[in-house]
Design a protein around this nucleic acid. Structure first.
Lengths: 224, 224
DNA sequence: TCACAATGTAAGTAATCACTCACTTTTTAG
DNA sequence: CTAAAAAGTGAGTGATTACTTACATTGTGA
C-alpha cells in the first residue's frame, strides 16, 4: 500500500476526536481510496462507485460507514489536518526555533525553508485537494487556516520577535509583516518552480533559497 | 456552426477585444451565465440546465453553439485570458515601468502593488475559477501561465534590470529572484488579508504595502 | 414572395449519480 | 455455543446528468 499520509493506523497517532475514534482496517481502506480518487478528480467529479472499487469493497459498505459523499471527504481530511498535518507542521517549526536560539537567523531560516519545501513536495496532491475544496466546504477552510496556517504563523512570529528583542532584526516593522513577507517569498519561489519548470523532486536548490534569505535579510538596494 | 470553440476561429488570430470576436448577443448571454454558474459551483458541479436558465435560453440552444460543457468553459475562459486579462495585466505594467523610469523605485513598486491589488480584488472569483480548473484542463493552465504569469514576470524583470544597471539595485542576485520574491511578498500579504481577516474592498492599506516595499528594499536586519 | 439555411426549442434519451434495502456473513457477548 | 448485533453485499431506486432530435421560428437573398 502506498504509504503516504493516511496509512497511519489510529493507535499510532494517539487520542483523536470522537468522530474518528477506532477506525477499522476496512474504514481506512475506504478513506485511502477516497484520498486517491478525490485528489485525482476533485470532489465533484469523483464517484462513490470508483472509491468502492479502489477500496475493494461494495458501494453499500461505504454508506454503512459514511452517511454521504461529503462525509467521506470530511471524515478523511479534517482528522488528517487536525491530527497529522497540523501537529507535524507546527511541531517541527517549534523545535527548530527553540533548539537553535543561538544560531544565526540566516541558518534557522534556511532550515525552516528547506523543511517547508519537503512538506510541500511530499503533500502536493493533498494540499491541492484541500485548498480547492476549501472554497466549497467551510469546515475545511476553518480547519486548514486554524490548525496549520494560523499556528505556523504564530511560531514564526515568536522567532522574529525573539530576534527583534536581541536587536538582530529591525523593530520598526511589526513581526507579522516580516513573517508573511518571508513566507510569501519562499512559497512563491517554490510554487513557480513547480509550475513553470520541471523540477525533479529533491533537486538541490539550497543555493537559491540562500539567495532569497539573503534578500530578505539585507534588502534589494545596492551597498552604499 | 461547426466551430468547436471561439479560440479556433480563423479570423481571431490578431489581438482583439472579446467584443470583436464574432459572437451573437445570445452567445454572450450564454457565456455570461456560464461564468456566473461556474464561478459559484465550480465546473463539475455546475449544470448545463442552470446555465440555460440563467441565460434565458433553452438547453438545446446551448448545445447548438457549444459542443460540450467543457467547450463552454474553454470558449469563455481562454479568450478572456488571452484578450482581456493578459493584455490588461501586461500593458499596465509596461506603461508604469516606461513612464516612470526616473521615479524612485519605491514609488514605482507602490504603484505596481496597488494596481495588482485592484486587479486581484476585481477579478477574485474569476481568478479562483481559473486556478481551480487549471488543475484539470491543461489548455487553461497554459493560457494563464503563458499569457499572464510569464509576460508579467518579463515586464518586472525589465524593471529590475533597468534599476540594476543604474546601480540602484544590487547586482549579485539574478533579477528573477528579486521579481518572484517581491511578487510573493505582496501577493501573500494580500491573500492572507482576504482569507484571515474581513477586509472591506478598497480598504486603505497603502501604509502597510509601503512597509513591505521598505522591507524588500532595505532588508530585515537592524541598522548597524 | 418564396426557398432555404440558420437559429431556437421542448421533449426526449441513455447513462450515471448518490444512496437504499433486503438479505447474508462475520463478530461479539454472556 | 448461541443469539443478537454489527458489518458487508449487490441489485435496485428515483433523480439528475450531458447531450440529441424532431420540429418550429426567424432571418436572408433574389
Amino acid at each position: 500500500m502506498d504509504d503516504r499520509s493516511l496509512s497511519e493506523r489510529p493507535n499510532s497517532t494517539g487520542l483523536q476526536e470522537p468522530s474518528d475514534l477506532q477506525l477499522t482496517d476496512k474504514q481506512w481502506n475506504i478513506l485511502d481510496a477516497a484520498l486517491a480518487v478525490f485528489t485525482e478528480k476533485g470532489f465533484s467529479a469523483a464517484t462513490t462507485s470508483e472509491i468502492a472499487r479502489q477500496a475493494g469493497v461494495s458501494e453499500g459498505t461505504i454508506f454503512r460507514h459514511f452517511k454521504t459523499k461529503k462525509d467521506i471527504l470530511l471524515a478523511m481530511l479534517v482528522p488528517l489536518i487536525r491530527n497529522t498535518m497540523g501537529p507535524k507542521s507546527v511541531n517541527s517549526l517549534t523545535q527548530m526555533i527553540v533548539k537553535n536560539e543561538n544560531l544565526p537567523l540566516r541558518e534557522v531560516l534556511l532550515m525552516i525553508a528547506l523543511e517547508r519545501q519537503d512538506f510541500l513536495l511530499e503533500n502536493q496532491a493533498l494540499l491541492r485537494l484541500i485548498l480547492t475544496e476549501a472554497q466549497y466546504h467551510p469546515e475545511l477552510r476553518e480547519a486548514i487556516i486554524g490548525e496549520v496556517a494560523y499556528k505556523s504563523q504564530e511560531q514564526l512570529i515568536r522567532l522574529i520577535e525573539q530576534r527583534q528583542q536581541k536587536g538582530e532584526i529591525r523593530q520598526d516593522l511589526p513581526a507579522w509583516v516580516l513573517v508573511r513577507s518571508f513566507f510569501g517569498m519562499v512559497v512563491v519561489y517554490m510554487l513557480s518552480g513547480v509550475m513553470l519548470t520541471k523540477r525533479e523532486a529533491g533537486k538541490d536548490n539550497r543555493e537559491e533559497i540562500l539567495k532569497i534569505i539573503d534578500l530578505f535579510l539585507n534588502g534589494a538596494v545596492a551597498e552604499k
